[in-house]
Design a protein around this nucleic acid. Structure first.
Lengths: 227, 227
DNA sequence: GCACTCGTTTGTGTATACGTAAATGAATAC
DNA sequence: GTATTCATTTACGTATACACAAACGAGTGC
């Protein structure tokens, strides 16, 4: 049980392990924003030498998760309201374009069914007042959608920026209003894709993300702490 | 004479120098697509040890310029027609969104004047049949424009993908039709920004990039070699 | 108290060392 | 001539070594 996971982890390079492990700790908030750690501390924590840690940090820094400051080690980057606004502008542009492309190309019946299933998951979670499950279903929906995009570079970018919003979304989950209109958006988006209407798909997705971004930004601006 | 340049280069870290130098050689086609080099060869070429070279390669690989294959060193990535299509889809989405934002925010008179100056440069170059100068002016225009975008993450992404199209644009410069309609697009875009019309700005930029992308893709598909 | 100098500590940037596994090629069998 | 095995080479992944410069703090002068 879960043997394949351990196996695959064990045959990965140390650099890859360091990257995955540090990233996981940041996303899980085990290393909250602002956390500073020296290369040596990370190396000790992960039971390896500084070399693979440094290489992992270069990637994480490129992806905007951490900052490497000359003498103070790595710092887990906080996500300010302004950062969030920037990230959502990018996600909005990329994802709405992807939605248009998907609607133009069309989706197979099983893919459409999967999307509808995810929408149903969201409805169920909302009915059960299970916000955690709702967030999972929401992630599921958007993952199914973006995976249907043929552009692998675009997919990679979207995943990268999702990562950067993950912590904030998790931590604001209980602060935001019930996501009823979010569910409505998703249903409308599936409809637009099903009827092969690229303009509508792009517009719906754009407004969906603009609204989500604006809400998160305002929560961050009014909230006490910077995440 | 160019002393400041040497100085700044000399106080850079070796990793930064390796990154800049390898990137330059790739963009200038001194290391054409497909070129394979071992870490040791690069290190010898740049008169440093493998360590900074490896760190530079990690960044270059993240940015999609090279591929690092376990035992064959680094390989300068070719840009296929499909790659170009992916990159232009992303640039189209990001830049047209940036154009809309700029039109919404509005530009100061000196920024508008600079843009108009760049358009004039393009006209002059085209009149003089100087394609090199035209490409420079075109780059100048789009740089001025994207620099007006407040979103630094978006700017960085656009620069990164421009880099990846640079070689192809240079090498196809003489193969493409005279860029008269390109100049017209730029003039129309400046007008849309000046009258603060975000929808028009986005639409014009979108179509401008879609056309440019389609042209490059078709040149690559019909051309003999992959760049 | 406050600024300033200078020695000390420490983290990093880079070079180097080293074991391992992939690639290569020779030698053999058919 | 083709396939297979095995020894050799070699490029890489990782660990370690080391010099330097930044940060820190004690001590000094005021």
């Amino acid at each position: 049980m879960r043997m394949e996971n351990r196996d695959s982890e064990e045959r990965m390079s140390l650099t890859a392990r360091a990257y995955g492990e540090i990233r996981r700790r940041i996303l899980d908030n085990e290393m909250p924003p602002g956390t500073m750690m020296l290369e040596q501390e990370l190396a000790a924590m992960l039971a390896m030498s500084r070399t693979p840690v440094r290489e992992a940090l270069i990637r994480l820094a490129n992806e905007g998760m951490v900052e490497v400051r000359p003498r103070h080690g790595m710092r887990v980057l906080p996500v300010s309201a302004d950062d969030m606004a920037e990230i959502y502008q990018i996600l909005t542009a990329l994802e709405s374009d992807a939605a248009a492309e998907i609607a133009r190309t069309g989706l197979g019946p099983e893919e459409l069914a999967a999307l509808k299933g995810a929408v149903q998951e969201m409805e169920d979670a909302l009915a059960a007042d299970d916000l955690k499950a709702w967030a999972r279903a929401d992630g599921h929906f958007h993952t199914l959608l973006i995976e249907a995009c043929r552009n692998k570079r675009l997919r990679a970018l979207v995943y990268q920026f999702w990562d950067q919003t993950y912590r904030v979304r998790m931590l604001t989950l209980t602060l935001r209003p019930r996501p009823t209109d979010s569910n409505r958006d998703h249903q409308a988006l599936v409809d637009a894709i099903e009827r092969r209407d690229p303009e509508a798909a792009a517009r719906i997705h754009r407004e969906h993300r603009l609204r989500a971004g604006a809400m998160l930004v305002s929560l961050l601006r009014n909230g006490p702490t910077q995440l």
